[in-house]
Every structure is written in C-alpha cells, then in structure tokens.
Design a protein around this nucleic acid. Structure first.
Lengths: 340, 340
DNA sequence: CTGAAAGCGCTTACAG
DNA sequence: CTGAAAGCGCTTACAG
C-alpha cells in the first residue's frame, strides 16, 4: 500500500527540533543555526521529506503556479512559445498549469475562472480573446493577466505582441518593390488583433504605393479555409501574382495547394509570404519568405511583465510591441538588388 | 488595490448559514436542503465566490492536478498528444501541470520530484526516461506514473506505446516487397525503447526476407543528426535505395536533404518511410509513407490507466501496446498490386 | 439537514 | 536562534 507522505512534523520529531524549525530550514531567507540546519537536513534526507507546495501556497498566498491558456496548438508557433515559457518560468521557480482552449470568448472566460480556482499567481493568455468583464474580475482578485500574441483594444490589459502593423506594411513594400501588381491577402482571423493588425498594415502599405489588394479573404487561422481561399483566388479572371498569408501555418497549406493541386509555380507564377517564421518556414520544401516574430523576446517580455505585476500589484499594465524583420527566402520574388 | 478573495466564511455570513453548509453546497454528493442551497448559491453569486481548489486539495488529499513531463516538443507528435490529453483530462475534472524536460534521466528525476511536490494525483511521462529508483519512490508515495510513447524494460511501470516492433517489421516487409535491395535505417535514439524497438522489428523483418540493413545510424531524434546521416549514407559507393527513418520529424529533414541538397529524387532514387503519421506527413510537400501511431487511442489508454490507478491504488501497473497501420503515400515506391 | 470543531501541512508573527 | 500558537480555506466525521 501507498506509504503516507512524510510531513515536517515527522522530520521535526526525528531531528529533535520543533516543526517550525523544520519549516525554517526549508524556507529561503529564514534563520536557523548551523546545527539545526544540519540535524534537520539529515532527518529530512533519511525520511525523504520534501515540503508540500500546496500547503505552503495556502499560507503564503503564493502558489508559484502560472496559468496558461492557449489555442491553436497546431500552429507550431505556440508549442515553441510554450517550451520557452516553461523553461524560463521554471528558472524563476514557477510552473505552468496549462489549459487548451477553443477560441470563443465564453470558453476562455470559463477556463480563466478555473485557472483562478487553482489560485494561480498570474495568467498568460496566448492567442485567445477574453471578455473585459473577466479581465476586470481578475484584476479585482489581484491576479495579473498578460495577453501573448494578442492585444485587447482599450482593455487596459497587459499584452505582448510583435509589431504587426509594421510587419504587414513591410510585406506590402517588399511585394510592391518586387514588381507585383495583383496582390491578394489571405488574412489571419479578423476577429483577432493579430490578424486584424497585419491586414491593416498591409493594406496601408499597398495604398501608400498606390495599390489596393485585389482580394482579401479571412483564413480563420485554418489550413483548410486558407487552401479554399487560394483556390478561389486562382479561379479569378486575373489571378493574383502574390499572396500575403496571415501566418506561416496557413501559408504552408496555400503553397501546397498552389503547387501540387493547382500546378501553380511558387514564386514564378505567384509569390507567397507568411508571418511568424516558425522553424518549418526555413525547411527546404517551403523556404518561405515571412516576417519573423521574435518568439524568445516575446516570451522574455511576457515573463518580465507578468512577474513584475505579481511582485508589485500596483504596477501598471503594460503593452509591449516587438518588431521583427522580414526574412527573405525563395517563396517570393525578390526586388532587384534588394538588401534587407 | 487588489480586493481579497472571497471565502466560504463570508458567503456563510451573508447567507446566514454555517461555513460547513456553504462547503456542502459546493461539494458534489454532500447533502443540503433546497432552501440552504438556494440561499448559499445566491450569496455566492453576489459575492463572486468560488471554492479554493488548493484548500480543497489539502484536506481531501486530491489535487486534481496531473503532472506531465514532456520532451521533444519540436516533434509535432507531442503537442498533438498534449492537446488531446489536456482536453480529455479536463472532461474528467483534472488539469495539467506541465514540465518540459531535457531528456536526461537526472533531469527527469528532478522534475518528477518537483511534480510530486505539487501533490499531483498522477504523472504522465511522455517521451522521457526516468530511473527506476524514482519510479519506486513515486510508488511509495502513492503517485501513479504512466509512460507515454516510451516503455521501461522490467520496471513494472505502466506504459502506453504503439506496437513498435510490429511497426518496424511492417516497414521492412513493405520495402522488401517493393523490390528494394539496399535498405538503410536512420533510427530513433537507440537509448529510447521506442527507437530501439522499431529498429528491432525492422531488422527482424529484413532478416526474415533474407536481407540485412546496409547501414544503421542513430538519428538521436534530431533533424540535424538525421540530415547528416542521410549525407553519409548517400556518400557510400552503393548508396541505399530506401531509408527507413525512426520518426516523421527526422524523415522530413531527410527528405529535404535528399531532394534539395543532394539532388536525389524521392521515391525514384530512394524511398523514404517515417513513423508516427503526424499531420505534416499528409502535407503534399512530403506525402510521407509512414506507420501511424494512433495518438487518440494512445491518449485514451493513458488516461484510462492513470485514472484507474488513481481511483484504485491496488490496481496493477499495466502495459498497453496499440497497433497502427502503415499509411502508404508517395515517398516510397509501392509494391506491385499492393493492398494494405 | 445542520453547526461546531478538528485537521490537512505548512508559514509566520510573537515571546523568550 | 527557537518553540508554541494561530491561521491559510477548506472538508468531514461527530452530535444534534
């Protein structure tokens, strides 16, 4: 049968000290004499004692757990971010309680509630939207939230994104400089700030050059929807000579559809540009030109913001926008003498 | 300032009942009169009360947290499994505390210790190895562990894998039937049961047909190592006409290296077969012939085993092996008139 | 059904 | 430095 877990009281008994003494030995920053430390450590080692994190959390009010809500795990950008987040947080003594979410506001609200039930010290909401009602409730409960790769207009919530508007504009400029004249956009979900902002910047860039997108279709962050959009686009009387796709994940689907289903050459017939620069974008089969989201910097900023607010509840929410370069590869025609 | 969280005592005061009554209303299966339920629910709603899961965990001894240790998140098989695991567990009222791990036994042992500090009710170790010492300690502490996509010889630990030996053999038979005569293997890490077993089955299959692998190189589950292995293989005087790669993740790298770096045609010059059938294997750029690991069935079995042991501590550890079909696509030459 | 009380395993003032 | 005691927010026998 399962032997019961060993407690600080048992260690105390064995070491011949009080239970508080044991606690002190395991509490960083608490004071205990060298002799006590020695006796307690010895007894703890013999018994295999380890402090119960949950009990500690109850009294200290700090669980050392960060809640993570994430959708779109099929887009490799998120598993990559998750891994970085987990490693960085662990270094700070925090761990991640993960909730995968369908991306509806209701579902996310629910899930954030559950996260709060676990007394998480803070919440990272990656690629999901939530109601400002809930955001308010979290603030009241004193639980900081930071949005990762998503903003929430006018919510006063902390958020970390890349410079999406600027990124979209760069793509437009690159495509125009490359001599494309019939440029289309299969966007990220327009209900997301990310998808929306990239489109805004892209269209602004086009306009600045006297062009307008020949078409814009919402790809909903779905490979299938994006593929279908590509088919529709190529059906037109004058099909596009370039397509900017709202993220790499969809861009791969678009490239495959173009090349293998429609027999369209990329980039000879159509240039394709994505967004994110996930590792796969560098794989030879795709070699995708794309705007890099500096995921490591985004993760650093997220953690800095979140822990900052955990440690200082009066700290104001902060929005961070990290610019990323356009990475030129072979999926899009390069302007003459282009230097990035 | 952060308003303090509301407790059951405050709800009790407002509802005019005892604190125990409040607890009962929120404890499934506890009894309370309709009137009490009504008063308590009303008060709770007004105050925005939700039970503190950690406090509940302390007294009940059940945290409703499952620890997940996972490595190789860059192999999409794992994010996919994570998502399924998370969703299925949530349905059962459990949540996942996730630890990403480098794959060394020491690191994993450490991390499992930390997991236990959080009083997790059970542990899923995906794609990682741990010492049997630690396994014993977990058993003593009464915390069930199940290995996911990894076995541990003679450890008496629960494990869920696909039928790797059989899968490896199927690949050999398919390749032989396809008329290949110089067959090589870039294996998964030979230190992992998964990599080892697939190689065993593969070689056995080859031997049964009177063949021997012309070469076998450990790909270490790394794209770079696998690519390098492919280069070495093709340098030989008589290069292979088929390569079985230990998982899809490496197989993609091998295909790219073959096609774009070495100018080798797949499957005309060399057939390539992978293992896992991650979604990407079906993407047109790769269209990879591979052995499917039925990830959903593996997840179901994992949860069934884990929750079974949580609910009945006397239940014996159990090893589950789930067979998966060979999925034939265009990366490997098909035998004449092949019917799967 | 319901309330008072004990207790889960800790941390942290409070005295000494 | 150290021990006795209170308390974190709950659940659960125990009486009534």
């Amino acid at each position: 049968m399962a032997q019961t877990k060993v407690t600080s009281a048992e260690v105390a008994a064995r070491a011949g000290v009080s239970q508080s003494a044991v606690s002190r030995v395991f509490t960083p920053g608490a004071s205990a004499s060298a002799k006590t430390v020695e006796k307690v450590k010895a007894a703890a080692a013999e018994l295999g004692y380890r402090p119960n994190v949950l009990a500690r959390a109850m009294v200290s009010g700090k669980s050392r757990i960060i809640g993570l809500a994430v959708a779109y795990l099929d887009n490799y950008f998120y598993p990559a971010a998750l891994e970085l987040l987990s490693n960085a947080l662990k270094k700070q003594g925090y761990h991640i309680l993960i909730f995968t979410a369908p991306n509806s506001v209701d579902a996310v609200d629910n899930l954030v509630q559950e996260l709060m039930d676990y007394q998480v010290d803070g919440i990272i909401a990656a690629s999901v939207s939530m109601s400002s009602t809930l955001a308010d409730r979290a603030r009241l409960a004193g639980i900081p939230i930071v949005l990762f790769n998503r903003g929430l207009e006018g919510s006063g919530m902390s958020a970390v994104t890349s410079a999406n508007i600027e990124g979209g504009r760069k793509v437009a400029e690159f495509l125009v400089a490359g001599g494309h004249s019939r440029i289309a956009h299969i966007s990220g979900w327009s209900g997301s700030s990310t998808g929306h902002d990239r489109a805004i910047g892209f269209n602004a860039g086009l306009n600045a050059a006297g062009q307008t997108a020949v078409a814009q279709i919402d790809g909903m962050y779905s490979r299938d929807v994006a593929s279908e959009a590509a088919r529709d686009l190529m059906k037109a009387q004058t099909p596009p000579d370039a397509i900017f796709v709202g993220n790499d994940h969809m861009a791969f689907a678009v490239m495959d559809t173009l090349r293998f289903e429609l027999g369209v050459s990329v980039p000879n017939d159509v240039s394709v540009i994505g967004y994110d620069d996930v590792p796969m974008a560098a794989w030879a089969s795709y070699d995708l030109t794309t705007v890099r989201q500096p995921v490591n910097k985004m993760v650093d900023a997220t953690i800095e913001t979140l822990l900052g607010q955990i440690n200082d509840p009066n700290r104001m929410p902060q929005k961070t926008e990290i610019p990323g370069p356009l990475i030129t590869r072979s999926s899009a025609r390069c302007p003459q003498g282009w230097t990035p």
